[in-house]
Design a binder for these strands. Structure first.
Length: 599
RNA sequence: GGGACCGUAGCUCAAUUUGGUUAGAGCACCGGACUGUCGAUCCGGAGGUUGCGGGUUCGAAUCCCGUCGGUCUCGCCA
């Protein structure tokens, strides 16, 4: 039986300083390491707050209690949980450990209680060993004791708290929305939940609270936010989990600029909490400019090395790859890599195989050396074309040009990742720098050639920029929307839009998207209904909390900032989820497994 | 659905390229020594179905086929 007194900590393990000398203290924590010197034992005691050194001195002759304590200390092992009472003592000037915040002092133990023993752990929760990810996830409780994980969890909490505090001050209220809701046909695949009480019916877990937050606006909530889990049943990536957390917010009677301003305030506070810079003025880039110069709608603006469209210049060459692309309506774009002429054949081949992943058939290149083009496609480019290219992109001797030629979308799709890859390889930007920007004026819709229909770029509830609905229907591809994304270092951190609050416009947009009246009624009828009863103009945005934390701690994976993440196949090594269920459970849901999976 | 890489002791890795003695090392673990360490040190010990299944071979961690698991990625993710 553990006595209550042993649990009454006076301090945590990161707290004691020189100012606490001679205090009687009690600490609880985990044995991080024990160092037995025969006549003196040191224990590093760890908790979430830090590490404090505890010392066990050789007991005096005849001190039986001291001897018992020393023997107990002698038996301690890594990761045992102990409670120590003792006296704070200065280590002595030559024994200070500068690596520890508490490194000036130590606690001389006067009483030791073992609160729990530990089997020898599958891996040491230190910062020195890289442990395989599935092992870390299986023993996540050990992994969470590692300083990096502890730090990430704490920062994640602080970031969430900062978000809430800014929005609370700005008059927002946090409202919860359902997790058991209705499947929506658009967008990602839904996670389905069978309904026991409604045979053969299913709930869906929300991909986002989009419709609910709009309805909250109709309900007069005015300013809403929610730190909320979202679910999408799609394949995973390092930066994609099937369940992830958003800071979701929505505001009534606002313009796009209002939403962006609030978001800037939130992000500023978040960055301050994380000890990072945030610009006073976040650059705003239009979608068209982003795609033109960066090849992508989430530009990494930490560095230049922009894409240049050189179709006009190379149209006159005899190089069929270039002219063919242009003649069939595509383009030729390039990036000019400063100092890239020193790339070896092997390095260029590596980039060629890199772009192949993005659908490129090859990578045309030309080095600039001694006033002329050399190698690669140089022979197709006469002196005049070479000079025009130099002038157009500001290229110098020592650079290399990487060309892509195809339909413009494909060209961008290849050059955008190549630009980022090369910049990282040659160190074009500071690894610990942050560059935020807004991307605005998104197209309302994009043509889906496969399905032969117009798809929303953002979602079907996004307000078109133009008032003229006839013009919208006549040329949908030209229409812009009141949508905006916030981007950091080439990663989309959040996005939102002004929503349609007018039922007539909403119906028109559904019509454009090929969603018939009946279908719209069945799937979004509740929203259309709400729009009939005094829906205020409103708009909002959602920030990806996991991605923001990931970026703030420079983690390579989202899994490093989520306490209990899933593996790439969507499993949880800790719990074993997902798993089979009993036939009884299935029967109760009127479900039957038709094809049993192999185990 | 496709591509790439990986899987050897509890953990991190070596031995695989070129098949060949008893599969090694560090950390952790167990025992011992040591009164000032701090990723303690020193001495000793134990620890292996080389993911799994099959094949080739006199002989397989090593080569081949399949399979399972992990990671990255293309597609996918309004």
């Amino acid at each position: 039986m553990i006595s209550d007194a042993t649990l009454k900590r006076t301090h945590n393990c990161g707290q004691l300083r020189e100012s606490d000398l001679d205090s009687e203290v009690r600490l609880c924590g985990w044995v991080r390491s024990y160092r037995d010197h025969g006549g003196v034992i040191f224990v590093d005691l760890r908790d979430r707050f830090g590490i404090t050194q505890v010392v066990f001195d050789t007991p005096e002759e005849g001190d039986e209690a001291g001897k018992a304590m020393y023997a107990l200390a002698d038996s301690l092992r890594n990761e045992w949980v102990i409670s120590v009472a003792g006296l704070v003592r200065h280590r002595g000037e030559d024994r200070i450990n500068p690596k520890l915040d508490t490194g000036q002092i130590e606690v001389v133990s006067t009483e030791l209680t073992v609160l729990n023993e530990s089997d020898s752990v599958p891996f040491e929760p230190d910062s020195f060993t890289e442990v395989a990810e599935d092992t870390r996830l299986k023993y996540r409780y050990i992994d969470l004791r590692r300083p990096e994980m502890t730090r990430s969890m704490i920062l994640r909490h602080e970031i969430t708290a900062a978000m809430r505090s800014v929005l609370n001050e700005e008059g927002f209220i946090e409202v919860e929305t359902p997790f058991l809701t209705k499947s929506t046909p658009e967008g990602a695949r839904d996670f389905l939940v069978p309904s026991r009480m409604n045979q053969a019916d299913f709930y869906a877990l929300p991909q986002s609270p989009q419709l609910f937050k709009q309805i909250l606006m109709v309900g007069g909530m005015d300013r809403y936010y929610q730190v909320v889990r979202c679910f999408r049943d799609e394949d995973l990536r390092a930066d994609r989990q099937p369940e992830f957390t958003q800071l979701d917010l929505e505001m009534s009677f606002v313009t796009q600029a209002d939403v962006m301003n609030i978001t800037d305030k939130v992000l500023k506070k978040v960055c301050t909490v994380a000890g990072k810079e945030f610009p006073d003025q976040v650059p705003i880039i239009t979608y068209d400019e982003a795609v033109d110069k960066y090849g992508i709608d989430r530009p990494d603006i930490r560095f230049e090395m922009l894409l240049h469209n050189v179709s006009d210049i190379v149209a006159k060459t005899d190089f069929k790859v270039f002219t063919g692309a242009i003649e069939s309506g595509g383009s030729v774009k390039l990036i000019c890599v400063p100092g890239g002429a020193k790339f070896t054949r092997k390095e260029i081949d590596a980039y060629t195989s890199f772009v192949a992943d993005y659908g490129a058939k090859g990578l045309a290149w030309a080095k600039l050396e001694d006033g002329a083009f050399a190698g690669g496609v140089s022979k197709f480019l006469n002196a005049d074309v070479q000079q025009q290219l130099r002038d157009a992109v500001g290229a110098n001797d020592g650079d290399i040009l990487f060309f892509a030629a195809a339909d413009t979308d494909s060209v961008n799709k290849v050059l955008a990742p190549l630009r980022v890859k090369v910049a990282g390889d040659i160190g074009l930007y500071e690894p610990n720098s942050y560059a935020w920007c807004w991307v605005t004026e998104f197209p309302l819709v994009a043509y889906n050639a496969q399905q032969k229909r117009w798809d929303s770029l953002h979602h079907p509830f996004t307000m078109p920029s133009c008032d003229d609905l006839d013009a919208l229907m006549a040329d949908p591809g030209a229409a812009k929307s009141l949508a905006y994304d916030v981007v950091c270092n080439g990663t989309e951190m959040g996005g939102g839009s002004i929503r349609i609050h007018d039922r007539k416009i909403q119906e028109k947009v559904f019509e454009l998207l090929g969603i018939g009246t009946e279908e719209a009624e069945e799937k979004f009828g509740f929203l259309l209904d709400a729009l009939r009863f005094g829906a205020p103009p409103h708009g909002g945005l959602a920030l990806g909390l996991d991605r923001i934390v990931m970026e703030m701690v420079s983690a390579p994976s989202l899994r490093d900032v989520i306490a209990f993440p899933k593996t790439q196949r969507g499993t949880c090594p800790l719990t074993g989820a997902p798993a089979e269920v009993d036939d009884d459970q299935l029967a109760e849901l009127d479900l039957k497994i038709i094809v049993p999976h192999q185990k």
